[in-house]
Structure formats: structure tokens, C-alpha cells
Design a protein around this nucleic acid. Sequence first.
DNA 1: TAACAATAATTAGTGTGACAAATATAATTA
DNA 2: TAATTATATTTGTCACACTAATTATTGTTA
Lengths: 145, 145
Amino acid sequence: MLNESYNQYSFILDRTARKVKQYAQTAFAEQQFDLTVDQWIVLRTIYENPSLSNKEMAELCGKDQPTLTRIIDLLIKKEFAERISHPSDRRSLRLHITKKGEYKIQEIAPKVADFRMQAWKNLNEEDFAHFTRILNTIYDNLTHK
Amino acid sequence: MLNESYNQYSFILDRTARKVKQYAQTAFAEQQFDLTVDQWIVLRTIYENPSLSNKEMAELCGKDQPTLTRIIDLLIKKEFAERISHPSDRRSLRLHITKKGEYKIQEIAPKVADFRMQAWKNLNEEDFAHFTRILNTIYDNLTHK
DNA sequence: TAACAATAATTAGTGTGACAAATATAATTA
DNA sequence: TAATTATATTTGTCACACTAATTATTGTTA
């Protein structure tokens, strides 16, 4: 029946997303970047958008707040990032990258871009347009009802 | 630069996959199915393909063996599935659904199909064809090198 | 201004994913 | 047939996702 195919689409989506992440993570490990893929995503976001709050950064990274808190914990342990308290709101804090974090970003960003390309072989600009449109439609279908 | 957009595609893919899963999981919880989305996927696979080994079932579900083992543990705890030892190979075992599991499948399958549709609104058959082709191309690009 | 509500961030708990290592058993081979 | 190799499954560990609960602080209002 028709509905069965929807299950299939969910399966393909999930499977592909995991494969892309796993492929990147393997490359990260092989090249000893000392970062997970998600840690790298967060660090790069901090690098490009310094001095945001946990909440704002979580939004930008597309992660929920508890997850972001834990990833930041790990980045701080590795001395790639730091939390700085907000001057006027003691509940809040600002996320910053360290010098060591900046060096890391600059070191690995081009390498990441290199092997990321592997995923998108055999696809053209038209495919990317479809990809973006379709996936964003799905996302919007499920967001704020 | 061009490479930046590849990062963006990874982001969209990951974000959409998580949203689809989360949306389904919320519906599962609201309707008190007493199953997670992944447990349901596995149970349905056992239902449709009875008497396979852990390894074979993992392959069908698109999960790795340790993950499947743990999901099966939970399904057994809920008495939806059982492990039956292989008659001639004591290393192996066969996965079966219980009566209680069958009832569960029959009860929730149509409901799942209902709310799964929400994700695919505003998309037509052509979009689904693009979706399947593009995501499978990505998957293949990263599989067995 | 004291009580209450709202907000920012964290912590806790459960489930899942990936990988490596361990265990038990079967198959092969020297 | 004893030793070795291969296979099936489970266990251990770390990371991430999501929900709910908690803590600390700020804002609001009676």
C-alpha cells in the first residue's frame, strides 16, 4: 500500500544521514583531528559567531541545549573553547573559542572540506537544488505544526 | 566558497533526519505505544521476516549488531519478541515475535502510517523519485569506498 | 517588597549509534 | 585430533538526542 513507501523514505533518510556522519567521523579519527564531527560543527559555529549564549548557539548549531552543554564541556576539556559570564545577567554566559581552538579550525577546515566532497559525487547543481528544497519541505512540515 | 555549501548539505540532511525521528517519537509517546521508533522498526522487521539470525536481522534493519542486540533485549523485556536457539548451531539464534508483539504491530501500524504522512506533505511523486535517487547516490558514494 | 512566574543553564535518565574487545561455538587444517 | 582460524553474539565505552527535573537568577505583580 501507499503508506508503506513512507516508511521506506524515513528509512532511507535515516540511513543516509548516519552514513554521512559515520564517513566523516572515520576520516576525523584516521587523521587524528582530536574532535568528533559534532564537536567540530559546534566549534566552527562558535568560531564564526562568537560571544553568543548557550541557547543562541544551540539554535544555530541545530542542537538542543543539553546536548550543546555537553559538547561545550568536552571542548572546554580540550581547551578549544571557554565560557565567559555575562556582565549583567548572571544566569547567562558567552561562548568563545580559544587560540588553540582557532588554530584547530584553521588546520582542519580545508581537510574536512576535502573529504566531505566525497558524499556529493555524481550529483549536479540541479540535484542539490532538489535536495535542499525537498529536505527543507520535510523539515518545515514537522516544525511548529 | 563552494566547499562551504557541502557542509550545509550535511547539516540539512542531519537536521531533517532528526526531525523526522523526533516527530514520530513524540507521536509514539503521546499515543502511549510503549515502543520507541527504533524498537518499532525492529519489531516490524521481525514480524515481516521471522526466524532470522541477529546478524541477518541487523542487516535488514540497517543497524549494527550490538545495537540490534540491545533493542532486542528491550523488546524481550516487554515480551514483544523472543530469541530461540538454533537447532544445529549453538552460536546462533532465531528472532521471533510473540503473540503480544503481533497484537502490538496490528494495533499501531495503521496509526503510524497516519502520522508518518505528515512529513511528506507538499511533495509529489516526482519529488519522491528525486529524494530516493539523490539520497541513495549519497549512500552509495560512501559505501565500500 | 514578598511571592510568584519566567528564563538560562545544567543535570539526570533512557535510548541509540559506532567501534573494539570478549565470549562461546563451529569449521578448518596441520 | 589438537591447534588455529572463523563466525555469532554480547559486553564495554564513549558520544549524541531527547525529555524532564533542578538550580540559579531575573522579572513581574499583588
